[in-house]
Simulated scan of single mutants.
Amino acid sequence: MNIQGMKLPVIVYHKIILLYLLIIPLLCIPVSSSSILSDSYCEEIGTYNNNSTYQNNLNKVLSNLTNKSSVTGFGTYKAGVGSNTVYGLYNCRGDLDSPMCHECVQEASKLIITECPSKMEAIIWYHECTLRYANRSISSHFEDSPIATEYSEVYPDPNLAELLRDTMNGLIKKAAYDNSTKGYAEGKGILTKYVDTLHCLVQCTPDILGSQCEKCLRSAMTTMPKDLTFYMIFSPSCNVFYRIGYFAAGTTNNDSAVPPTPFIKGTNNAYLFFLLRQQIVLGVQQFKS
Rank of each mutant, 00 (worst) to 15 (best):
S32P: 00
E214V: 10
K215I: 08
Y41M: 09
A185I: 04
T47Y: 13
I147W: 00
T76Y: 05
T114Q: 13
K188P: 00
I123D: 02
S235W: 12
F263P: 01
I147P: 01
K173H: 02
S139K: 03
G189E: 04
N254C: 12
I147M: 09
L27T: 14
L228G: 04
V258D: 14
D207N: 10
F142T: 05
W125T: 02
T252G: 08
T223K: 11
F234T: 01
A122Q: 04
Q4W: 00
F287W: 10
A161I: 00
L26V: 09
Q285R: 05
G94S: 08
M1C: 12
M221D: 08
S40P: 08
K68M: 09
I16E: 10
N50M: 07
A248S: 14
Q55S: 13
Y246V: 10
E186A: 08
N91R: 05
L201D: 03
I112C: 06
D166I: 07
T229G: 11
D255M: 13
K193L: 15
L21T: 07
E121H: 10
N239R: 15
D157A: 06
A108L: 12
S289T: 10
L275K: 13
E107H: 02
L198P: 04
S109N: 04
T167P: 03
S98I: 06
T72F: 00
N253P: 04
Y231C: 06
Y13I: 13
M1N: 14
G75Q: 02
F241K: 08
L201G: 06
D157S: 11
F230P: 03
I24M: 14
Y177C: 03
F287M: 06
I24R: 08
T72P: 00
K174I: 04
S32A: 12
I244W: 08
L37C: 00
Y242N: 06
P236L: 13
W125Q: 07
N253Q: 14
C204M: 09
Y20T: 15
I208T: 02
S289R: 15
A108C: 08
G266E: 09
K15Q: 13
V31S: 11
N254A: 14
Y194K: 13
L19G: 07
P262C: 07
C200R: 02
S140H: 08
S235R: 15
C101D: 02
S139L: 05
Y231S: 12
K265M: 12
Y13A: 07
L26F: 07
A257V: 11
L275Q: 14
E107S: 03
L89M: 10
P9H: 14
A108K: 03
N135V: 03
E143H: 05
C116K: 02
N253D: 12
Y13D: 09
A175T: 02
D39W: 10
I16A: 15
L282V: 15
G80I: 01
G183F: 05
Y90T: 00
R218C: 04
V10F: 15
S140V: 01
N84S: 09
N56Q: 13
C238Y: 09
R136L: 04
G94E: 06
S289N: 14
V240W: 05
L18K: 02
N268Y: 14
L228W: 06
V284T: 02
L65I: 05
F263V: 15
L8P: 06
Y133S: 01
L96Q: 05
F142V: 04
C129G: 03
